[in-house]
Design a protein around this nucleic acid. Sequence first.
DNA 1: TATTATACTGAATATAAATTCAATGAACTA
DNA 2: TAGTTCATTGAATTTATATTCAGTATAATA
Lengths: 196, 196
Amino acid sequence: MTRKEQKEMRQKQIIFKSLELFVSKGFSETKVSDIAEALGISVGLLFHYYESKEALYKDLVEMGVQSTKRLEAIKFNDPMEYFLKTTEELFNAAEGQPWVFQMFVLMSQARRCGIPEKIRQLALSVDQVEFSAEIIRHGQENGTIKDGDPMALSFAFWCSIQGVMEQHFITPDIPLPKAEWITDILKKHNRRDDLK
Amino acid sequence: MTRKEQKEMRQKQIIFKSLELFVSKGFSETKVSDIAEALGISVGLLFHYYESKEALYKDLVEMGVQSTKRLEAIKFNDPMEYFLKTTEELFNAAEGQPWVFQMFVLMSQARRCGIPEKIRQLALSVDQVEFSAEIIRHGQENGTIKDGDPMALSFAFWCSIQGVMEQHFITPDIPLPKAEWITDILKKHNRRDDLK
DNA sequence: TATTATACTGAATATAAATTCAATGAACTA
DNA sequence: TAGTTCATTGAATTTATATTCAGTATAATA
């Protein structure tokens, strides 16, 4: 194997394994020795590739920023379609490529206190809530999304996605919800309260 | 002040302040010195009251187990009423008595890896998802709750609550959702797809 | 009031985990 | 092939933090 190949392979190994560990155990709870052990390499080698545990984590958050931005680029005709597509895409990804949604969980983790402030700010720099609130406003105008503070609705939607993603990581045996269940948080249902 | 009073007051101080810190920063990220400093007492005194950081955390989780059980005791006539009442209660509590919902967040934290295994098991011993799935089954029978795997629906509901609670702790400025938005995840809406 | 118990402190110790480093061997380069 | 670079290791070092401890002050008790 050539040097270049070897290096790239190691970097990928390290990135993906540490993502997995950071997401399941958290930043502080994950020891560099855990990562090294999980990869079957020495701790020293980790420091050959990353100058510090923090730098490794920062690289991951930067990856997360990128993939979050990609979420915002999803094309859609109707607001509700955006949320349905996004949710489906995330839930599907959760099955096939674990890293897509691990990323999602990581980003939320990184926004909390207890994370080195610089990295935290980086993670806070992308924010779906505000972005989606704008789309929700359109949906309210064309009558497909229920009334209410768009920020609060957006918040409710994303928190739910977040909650599902995180919990799914902990208990992967419980089946994921259908995307429509979650988007029902936003959807305007034509009233027929008389039934009640 | 009498010795007894003094002791009780200190214990309360320690419990509530450490709950606050553990919830916002996580178990490992919270140093015992952080807690001591936040209370304006010496580190030594903390160890006078609790034999270890772990024991302190365990006490909190035990409190959490109690309050979770209290949630399960809520009286209701109709399944949807249970979920609406529960959600409203939680969201209201989130305003007045922060500890109620801090507890909620703590319990989820405690269920993750990275927490001493014994404590983790304690936190896992109460589980709203299974409990609520049963209620959902009733709701499906009487036609008020949408069709689908009751476990998955219950999971979706509780994960959403979880997500909202956690995020609200981080960004308390964003208004909390209306309880009905969240319960719409479960509610059976009479179809009128022709509109679409 | 004298004695005892205990709330409390700050510094000392132990420990675990991040980081550094000197040494080894395998791939490149001339 | 000889020399250079770099991936790799394992042990040494540093640092951060939990825990312990010897001593002080304040409330209870006789």
